[in-house]
Every structure is written in structure tokens, then in C-alpha cells.
């Protein structure tokens, strides 16, 4: 069995109505839980950018990216392991919360 990692999948799309549900549907179909979803203008005129984090295997991340790219209005899709950055961020949050806990006492 492959190990799961937290992947960040980035999707560049045309600005078309309904793409959010199209993209979300690709994850739902494979029972992939979306840990994080951000949508914003990409900086390239008329191009939107989705960033979706999900915990899965490398082969599943690759399959999702290829099938996302198949959608007519999807321009490009990428995937990368998000684990390191995300665990650093999580550690920061945990530190912050425990600091606040101490401050409360």
C-alpha cells in the first residue's frame, strides 16, 4: 500500500460558472475529504485558481489531476505534497493555542 500524504492540488481554470461543483465532484467521487479549499483570481487575466488540500496517495493525486485536466474549462492542474508546510503550520497553531491556554490560567 502507498502511504498517504497531504497533497495540495492547484487547478487553473477559465472563469466559468459551475466549475467549483465540477471540481469538488471529482474529489467526492473518490471519497476524498477536502481539508482546505481556496479560490481566487490567479493573477493571469481571466484565469481562476483553486487550491485544494486533500490527504491521499501519490497515484490518486496524479489520477485526480489528470482527470481534472480533462475538463474542458480546466487549463492546468498540479499536485504537490503539502505535509511539511502544513505540519509546521499545525505546530504553530498548537503552540499558539497552548500559549493562550497558559495565559488564561
Amino acid at each position: 500500500m502507498e502511504n498517504d500524504s497531504l497533497y495540495e492540488i492547484t487547478v487553473y481554470t477559465e472563469n466559468q460558472v459551475g466549475l467549483l461543483s465540477t471540481i469538488a465532484g471529482m474529489f467526492t467521487r473518490r471519497s476524498l475529504n477536502i481539508d482546505r479549499l481556496v479560490v481566487y483570481p490567479s493573477g493571469i487575466e481571466g484565469v481562476h485558481k483553486f487550491k485544494i488540500a486533500t490527504r491521499t496517495s501519490a497515484s490518486m493525486a496524479r489520477a485526480v489531476v489528470l482527470q481534472l485536466e480533462k475538463k474542458v474549462d480546466v487549463i492546468k492542474a498540479f499536485y504537490e505534497i503539502d505535509d511539511e508546510r502544513s505540519s509546521r503550520e499545525a505546530a504553530e497553531v498548537r503552540n499558539f493555542l497552548s500559549m493562550r491556554e497558559r495565559q488564561k490560567q
Partner: peptide
């Protein structure tokens, strides 16, 4: 209908 058929179409448009 778009919502119903999005996962089973190559493209759909209202």
C-alpha cells in the same frame, strides 16, 4: 439539469 449531469458530461452549459 446542469447539476444533475455535470459528473456525466464532457461539457454542459445553461
Amino acid at each position: 439539469f446542469i447539476g444533475l449531469t455535470t459528473p456525466i458530461t464532457k461539457w454542459s452549459y445553461q
